[in-house]
Simulated scan of single mutants.
Amino acid sequence: MASNEQPIIIKKVKKVVHGHHGGAWKIAYADFVTAMMAFFLLMWLISMTTPEQKQGLADYFAPSNVSRSTSGAGGIMGGTAFDETGARMPGTKPQVVMTISTPAQPKSPETAKKEAERTTEMNELMKQMSSRDHRNFQSAAESIRQSMRDNPDLAELSKNVIIDETPEGLRIQIVDQDGRSMFPPGNVEPYERTRLLIEKVAKILVRLPNRISISGHTDANPVTGRPGYSNWELTSDRANATRRIFENAGLANDRIYQVVGKADSEPLFPEDPYMASNRRLSVVLLREAPVTPPGFSP
């Protein structure tokens, strides 16, 4: 007897699974971008280097059996020898240092004009200050000489005073002479005639605005009779005693620039360090302006 039941058909379907691409393409793309960046950076560096720098790079990558000697000034490798008898050891490569200079930005016409105007104004100001210093120095020197001529007590000291103009300013030196000292031997306080001379100088310099430097000097003979007391202490004390005389004569304290003792380190006559004239006081009326102002052409 036939069965009415339908046969059961089992259909097997083979499913093909395709693999996922993953992130490999990202790595490849990153390598490509990096390579392009390196390429453009190389092109930029090549465009910015000088011929001498390019030659230095070529020498660096040259085969080791090629000997090349380059010397002379200029360029990154200027003055360096690259053969085996030069500055490097055989078989080594020279070190290449590459510098990249950024071109200076051009100044605008307005900026250049303002800078030129400021330079002109500064030069004119410095010129005026130098001229004023020169006039003041001449006036002070003549006033000191005139005061000595008018005073019989000071006229005999004219040979003990040296007045000259130096790059620092107007220098007034009160020096010892054989048989006529300005200070008692080894003493800090000057003779009365020396004190009077210093006061006259102070009263003339007090009328000028320039600052003042005072220094004491002596000869090469050491100080005797005072253990531990040398020419350094003696000249410092004498310079300081002179400062007190200046201040008592009316010189403001802020006008004093420096007070120093130099012992026998700066003799007036280096060929004879024991000469009496090496013992002296030096008073310098300092310049307000340098001798040659920056950028000034007379």
Rank of each mutant, 00 (worst) to 15 (best):
S158Y: 05
N160H: 04
N160G: 14
S147D: 02
M182N: 00
N151W: 00
E156K: 08
G169K: 00
L170A: 12
I172N: 07
E165C: 05
M182D: 03
D153P: 01
M148I: 12
K159E: 11
V175N: 06
P152N: 14
A155N: 11
R180H: 13
M148L: 03
E156A: 08
Q177A: 08
D153E: 11
D150M: 01
S181I: 10
V175K: 12
L170G: 06
I163R: 01
G186E: 15
D164E: 13
I174S: 11
M148S: 01
I163E: 08
T166L: 06
Q173M: 08
G179V: 13
A155V: 14
S147N: 12
P185Y: 07
D153G: 11
G186R: 04
D176S: 08
D153C: 04
G186A: 11
P185N: 14
L170D: 01
I163D: 10
N151C: 01
E168K: 12
F183D: 11
S181L: 15
I163Q: 09
S147R: 12
P185A: 14
E168M: 03
E168R: 09
I174W: 02
E165W: 00
L170K: 05
Q177F: 08
M182K: 05
R180N: 05
L154I: 05
N160S: 14
S158Q: 02
V175Y: 06
P185K: 15
D164L: 03
Q177I: 12
D176G: 04
I172Y: 03
S181W: 01
M182L: 07
S158N: 02
L170H: 04
P167A: 10
F183A: 10
V175F: 00
L154P: 02
Q173H: 01
R171Y: 02
G169F: 03
I162Y: 12
D153T: 06
A155T: 11
I162H: 13
P185G: 08
N151L: 08
P184T: 12
L170M: 03
R149S: 12
S158W: 05
V161S: 05
I162K: 05
N187Y: 14
G169M: 00
S181A: 09
E156I: 13
G169R: 00
L157W: 06
L170N: 02
D178V: 04
D176T: 09
L170Y: 04
L170C: 01
F183C: 13
D178T: 06
V161G: 02
A155S: 10
V161Y: 00
P167L: 02
L154Y: 04
R171S: 14
V161R: 00
D178R: 12
N160Y: 11
D176R: 03
Q173V: 01
F183M: 09
P152M: 03
L157K: 10
G179A: 14
V175S: 05
R180M: 13
R149M: 11
L154Q: 03
